[in-house]
Design a protein around this nucleic acid. Structure first.
Lengths: 166, 166
DNA sequence: AAAAGGTCATTCAAGCTTCAACTACGTTCG
DNA sequence: CGAACGTAGTTGAAGCTTGAATGACCTTTT
């Protein structure tokens, strides 16, 4: 009953899976060390700065920011505290929803991002993007796009979730 | 001089890169929560158990284990302490090199791995492997293989490193 | 209008990771 | 040999992450 024979991965799939975790295990630390060394930023700091920089008025609601950067609210809250202490962002209360708050990019934060971006992009190129052929990049983008979509929590749009496949 | 125009990513590449980090950010926590809930293991615990289980006598030198699982020696050392306390592994001194040590899988560790493997594989299928087409998996495997190889520290085989590309 | 139930964000404690410092042992070479 | 250097693994402290618990506020229901 609960004892169906497990569906192991094929040798090929196993191999693919191991390449993927290997990258997952090694890439972020590598990028982070380079960012840290050159600009004193963590990868999460950077991702947050980027998000803020791309939004009107350089501010984003904390919930949205948490979702955009794929982290828990709790972690983001701590992160914001650190970044606020570092002068990269400030919090601003939301006027229309008194529970909420915005993260706002400071001038300093903007300058740090501008300074860090070129070197970070170079890192990403060197260790990842320039290592793949254009054709590979395209396929990886499509494949990971669907993977990411399935991982993302369903948007809470007051709609009922589509029924589980029958 | 040091001020060359940064080589930004194209829109397509940017998009690919974001899909990749999104997966990097979301996949491990998801797999980990499921492993944790069903068998009380972290993803790192699991990776270590797998490595040990695949080696003769179910033991591996700590250095090799650190390399195989892509973590620092320090982290592995802490991890081993925890896993030893949990009864999953034991340390054994290396007879031929008195600095070194082996990690050895215990009976208990073996049983836990056997129990956890089917559910973990299902997780990996559900969130990753079964979401990609066979063609995508193949390309991703190749692409990430080369990425991983470039990230891996050069093997220390007493050979001199190949000269930087001229 | 009040109750019930959800959401936004923060807090705390426990656990994990990192980095640098350290011990102990092997290896090389003058 | 023995000094100098490299490698194996551990430790401790600081910092980061996690998950549950909380307070404050909206929204829906009765």
């Amino acid at each position: 009953m609960t004892e169906a024979e497990p569906r192991w991965l094929s040798d090929e799939d196993q191999c693919v899976w191991r390449q993927i975790i290997a990258v997952i295990n090694m890439l972020p630390p590598r990028l982070e060390r380079e960012l840290q060394r050159t600009h004193g930023l963590s990868l999460h700091d950077y991702q947050i700065l980027v998000q803020l920089s791309e939004h009107p008025d350089r501010e984003v609601r904390l919930s949205d920011l948490a979702e955009a950067t794929q982290q828990s609210k709790s972690r983001l809250s701590h992160q914001m505290t650190r970044m606020e202490n570092a002068g990269l962002v400030v919090r601003r209360n939301c006027p229309t929803d008194r529970r909420g708050a915005f993260a706002v990019l400071t001038e300093e934060g903007w300058r740090v991002l501008e300074a860090a971006a070129p070197t970070h992009v170079e890192s990403v190129r060197e260790h990842l993007m320039d290592v793949m052929t254009p054709a590979q990049k395209q396929v990886v983008g499509e494949a990971f796009g669907t993977v990411a979509d399935k991982l993302r929590p369903p948007a809470r749009t007051t709609a009922c979730p589509s029924p589980n496949q029958p």
